[in-house]
Design a protein around this nucleic acid. Structure first.
Length: 708
RNA sequence: GCCAGCGUAGCUCAGUGGUAGAGCAGCGGUUUCGUAAACCGCAGGUCAUGGGUUCGAAUCCCAUCGCUGGCUCCA
């Protein structure tokens, strides 16, 4: 598959066990999500639970106990601790809503007050199955006719030879590896937080269960602190600040996930582009521009179609009516042919098609049929291509850039060729996945594709990494995780291009760049792109959601698919390697993250309104002086605004502070006389008087240096 | 896409079957001020949209759209 979707920083990758270890050690652990591994945890791993996880896991059992007292038919699936709390998945006739929480919490309190011991017993598999069949597992008593169906499923996942343990608190008995706190009374403070639905074992083919989330702490103070912290986090949520600061908006008539950038937000976009353009120019990139859409055929070449079609907006058809009817007919025929081909392959085994295609004189009737069909398939394909056009909005920029590379004959002397574009892409994300600016359907990527020789690769890759770090220093990012995704040799030829030597070589190169640069990273096997290893940069939003903010990927497979080549010094034709990189991700997600990172208090160079000149009074000489300062600043490209109105000074300051204006120059009669301005910085209060020229020079320097 | 909750003025919210409200922002006046909010007034709403129940619906029911949380997806 070409152009791994995960290349697009819009795609947060699935959390991995490896990340969870690091996530837990980060300074910001309170907001870092805890990742449950996809794999079943071993007993050893489970026993490594922290004290608070133990407590929360125990709270899940108490939750189940309480629910059974109210709804005895409930069947429970899994109830693990998660970062900041716990949940229990269950199935029952009653649909739980938050209105049920007080009742449930009452019952939970009773169970905690009873201070029952969590008592562990080891049973044989047969005993456990017998208890599940009588409905006893995950129940308060035997429940004839109400089999503990999910517990039977869980039992099946426990490997032979591993101990099967049960935990009992009061009447509630559950299949559980533990560990738990000693007694229910050890659960100091808890609260149920929300209900959700979840597929059993996370598989959407399985039935949906009701999931109840809660949180628990050692004591009430910690619980309250947690909720206070959540409130604080919500204040810096980019959706809230984006509205308050008039950065962006969404409109139903425009469509979900399609942000409209207001003037203030557009300032952020343009400042970022300026930074990117300067940086990329200095690093030897060439800028290109490409259309927002392309013909179907390109995406057949790239491989986006049909595999990626679900994530693309449906195509625009440019086709005459009579051709359309013809096309529909041919498409129907084509799909019938494909179906028959597939069923022949199914009937006659996996090597059937090979054996037929390589047999010079196939005699078997099914082989003859197969050959006839494949010939017909090709005819239909070419007939279809001749009938009308389909245009797709681009989901990625790489195919367009590959076409630019291929547009001219290339020599090794042209390499490395670095093509950069803030390209606009469109992805049809599922409606439930949209989230403010963090997950959208239209996005502008800080994209570039670097075409280079193998010999150049390491230097190029290192330079890209250094660019990341340079950016992160400018923004003062500290809380991020570099994730190095490698392939799994067992899946060569399926999930990954079958080029073991190139995999090894590029992975070694990437690893060595990381180590030499002293970058702290986690390595995750089996998460690479189809076409090569990659590094994703993971960050966490204010409310603790993980996102890929930037990405850097190696591609040693796709250029060949596009027939890209260059003339090497020995006069042979060679295929270039390609690096896909987006250090500033997409405007949408990057700015979403920046808003939260700065809590809306942008540094001077980014601030939508950089300077506000406030007069104390409305006397003409004062206003003229203030106006002169504003004009001088604006002439130098500073976003300065004057407030010469009749409001009292304190009100003007309050207004500027609320709008998070970075620098306020307050001017009264005293300043006018001395040729000064009184400097006030947002959130920092009054700094004091300064000569006007000095203040202006300082502002210009701070902007130029992109000072934090 | 799935499950649940929510949708009242530009923003934050009150109103739970009987005449749509407040604060802030906006606009018009008055006020002429030294570091986070002077005073008075005005205007602003098909209560997301469509249908239903009812003498009467912002309020109850159904559908649609959107947002939020979670799940799934993210090749």
């Amino acid at each position: 598959m070409l152009c791994d979707a995960s290349f697009m920083p819009e795609s947060p990758r699935r959390a991995s066990a490896a990340v969870s270890v690091l996530a837990d050690t980060r300074a910001s652990a309170s907001f870092a999500p805890h990742f449950m591994s996809d794999e079943r945890k071993s007993l050893e791993q489970r026993n490594a639970m922290t004290d608070i996880e133990r407590l929360r896991h125990s709270a899940a059992h108490v939750l189940a106990t309480a629910i059974l007292r109210i709804w005895p038919d409930a069947q429970f699936a899994a109830g693990p601790p998660v970062e900041n709390g716990f949940y229990y998945d269950l199935d029952m006739a009653h649909r739980i809503t938050p209105e049920d929480f007080p009742r449930i919490e009452e019952e939970m309190k009773k169970e905690i007050k009873a201070n029952n011991v969590f008592e562990r017993t080891v049973v044989t598999r047969a005993e456990a199955i017998a208890m599940a069949e009588s409905g006893r597992l995950g129940g308060l008593s035997e429940r004839p006719g109400n089999v503990s169906k999910f517990k039977i499923g869980n039992l099946a996942d426990i490997p032979e030879g591993e101990e099967i343990s049960l935990f009992r608190n009061g009447d509630f008995l559950d299949l559980c590896a533990g560990p738990h706190v000693m007694r229910t009374g050890n659960i100091g403070a808890f609260r149920l937080t929300h209900v959700a639905s979840a597929y059993w074992k996370g598989d959407e083919k399985n039935p949906q269960l009701q999931r109840i989330y809660g949180t628990a702490f050692k004591n009430k103070t910690q619980l309250e602190e947690y909720f206070t912290m959540l409130e604080e986090a919500k204040k810096r949520d980019h959706r809230k600040l984006g509205k308050e600061m008039e950065l962006f908006t969404f409109d139903d008539d425009v469509g979900p996930g399609l942000p409209l950038w207001l003037p203030n937000g557009t300032v952020l976009i343009e400042e970022l582009e300026k930074l990117a353009k300067e940086t990329e120019f200095a690093a030897g990139y060439d800028r290109v521009r490409t259309p927002h859409l392309a013909r179907e055929n390109m995406y057949l070449t790239s491989g986006h179609l049909p595999y990626y079609a679900e994530s693309m907006f449906p195509p625009m058809e440019l086709i005459e009516q009579h051709d359309k009817e013809q096309k529909n007919k041919l498409e129907k025929e084509y799909s019938d042919v494909l179906q028959e081909l597939l069923s022949l392959q199914d009937q006659h085994g996996p090597d059937f098609s090979k054996s037929v295609l390589f047999d010079p004189a196939p005699e078997r009737p099914e082989a003859k049929r197969y050959l006839k069909l494949t010939e017909h398939e090709r005819e239909l394909e070419s007939a279809l291509l001749k009938l009308g056009d389909r245009y797709y909005l681009k989901a990625m920029n790489c195919p367009h850039h590959h076409k630019i590379f291929g547009a001219l004959p290339r020599s090794y002397r042209d390499l490395p060729l670095r093509l950069a574009e803030y390209g606009t892409c469109y992805r049809y994300e599922q409606s439930g996945e949209l989230m403010g600016l963090m997950r959208v359907r239209s996005m502008q990527m800080n994209d570039a594709h670097i075409y280079c020789t193998e010999a150049q690769f390491e230097d190029e890759f290192r330079a890209v990494n250094e660019m990341y770090l340079k950016y992160f220093r400018i923004f003062g990012f500290e809380k991020y995780q570099m994730r190095f995704s490698t392939h799994d040799p067992a899946k060569l030829g399926q999930k990954f291009v079958d080029e073991p030597a190139l995999w090894k070589k590029t992975e070694d190169m990437v690893r060595s760049v990381l180590i030499k640069s002293g970058i702290n990273y986690v390595e995750v096997a089996n998460e690479a792109a189809f076409y090569g290893p990659k590094i994703d940069v993971q960050v966490w939003s204010a409310i603790g959601k993980e996102f890929t903010i930037a990405t850097n990927q190696v591609d040693f497979a796709v250029p060949a698919r596009f027939g890209l080549n260059y003339r090497a010094s020995d006069n042979t034709q060679q295929t270039p390697l390609c690096i896909h990189r987006a250090p500033l991700g997409t405007h949408e997600r990057f700015i979403g993250f920046l808003i939260e990172h700065y809590a809306g208090n942008f540094p001077l160079w980014l601030a939508p309104e950089q300077v506000r000149v406030i007069t104390i009074g409305v006397e003409e000489p004062l206003v003229a002086y203030a106006r002169g300062i504003v004009e001088e600043l604006r002439a130098q490209g500073v976003r300065a605004v004057g407030d010469y109105g009749t409001d009292p000074m304190k009100a003007k300051i309050a207004d500027a502070e609320q709008r998070k204006v970075h620098t306020m120059l307050v001017i009264g009669g005293r300043d006018l006389e001395a040729g000064n301005v009184s400097l006030r910085l947002h959130g920092k209060g009054n700094i004091g008087a300064k000569p006007r020229n000095e203040a202006v020079a300082d502002i210009l320097t701070a902007i130029k240096e992109r000072r934090a």
